[in-house]
Computed example of a mutant assay.
Amino acid sequence: MIWEDAVAFALGLPGAELSTYYGAPAVKAANGRAFLTPGHEAGSFCIQLDLDTVAMLIETDPGTYWQSPHYQGWPAVLVRHDSADPERVRAMIGRAHDWALSRPRPRPRKTP
């Protein structure tokens, strides 16, 4: 699943919208929380999930889910485009959407 496929799937989730996150394209939940971003590493995109789920994904399928040093310790996991299990990837995008909705709306950023 490449970035465009992930975005197309994510935009089909209730209230999801295309937006930006730190200046990059992203899909956000209805409360303004990003849950899908392109990531910093080529060949992967990023989903935001709770730390327990991130650890479980990396342990059970390190060929698909991983973290570079940039993401370690943060509630986010990289997903390789060439995953052998696109159904599980879609399920995890859905879970990331649900987790984003369970969190409070992000605080507005200060503008200079």
Rank of each mutant, 00 (worst) to 15 (best):
M1F: 08
I2D: 15
I2H: 14
W3C: 07
W3K: 06
E4S: 13
D5F: 01
A6W: 08
A6V: 03
A8S: 14
F9R: 09
A10W: 00
A10N: 03
L11R: 14
L11H: 11
G12F: 13
G12L: 11
P14W: 11
P14A: 14
P14M: 12
P14K: 11
G15H: 09
G15L: 05
E17P: 00
L18C: 04
L18N: 07
S19M: 04
Y21T: 08
Y22M: 14
G23A: 06
A24M: 11
A26G: 04
K28F: 06
K28M: 02
K28G: 01
G32Y: 11
T37H: 05
T37K: 03
T37C: 06
T37I: 10
P38V: 07
P38G: 04
G39L: 08
G43D: 07
G43L: 07
S44E: 02
C46A: 13
I47L: 02
Q48I: 10
L49G: 01
L49E: 02
D50S: 01
L51E: 09
L51A: 13
D52E: 15
T53C: 06
T53I: 10
V54E: 03
V54Q: 04
L57W: 07
L57K: 08
T60C: 09
T60P: 00
T60W: 03
D61F: 02
T64M: 04
T64N: 03
T64A: 02
Y65S: 05
Q67P: 07
P69V: 15
P69T: 14
P69S: 15
H70R: 11
Y71H: 12
Q72R: 15
Q72C: 14
G73C: 02
G73H: 02
W74Q: 14
P75S: 02
P75T: 00
A76S: 12
V77Q: 01
V77R: 03
L78Q: 10
V79I: 08
R80Q: 08
H81I: 05
D82V: 09
A84S: 11
P86E: 01
P86N: 02
P86H: 03
E87D: 12
R88K: 07
R88P: 01
V89L: 03
R90L: 04
M92G: 03
M92S: 00
M92A: 00
I93L: 05
R95L: 14
R95K: 14
H97I: 05
H97E: 04
H97A: 02
D98T: 15
W99N: 03
A100P: 08
A100Q: 05
L101H: 04
L101G: 04
L101V: 01
R103M: 11
P104D: 06
R105E: 15
P106C: 03
R107T: 10
R107Q: 10
R109P: 04
R109I: 06
P112G: 09
P112H: 11
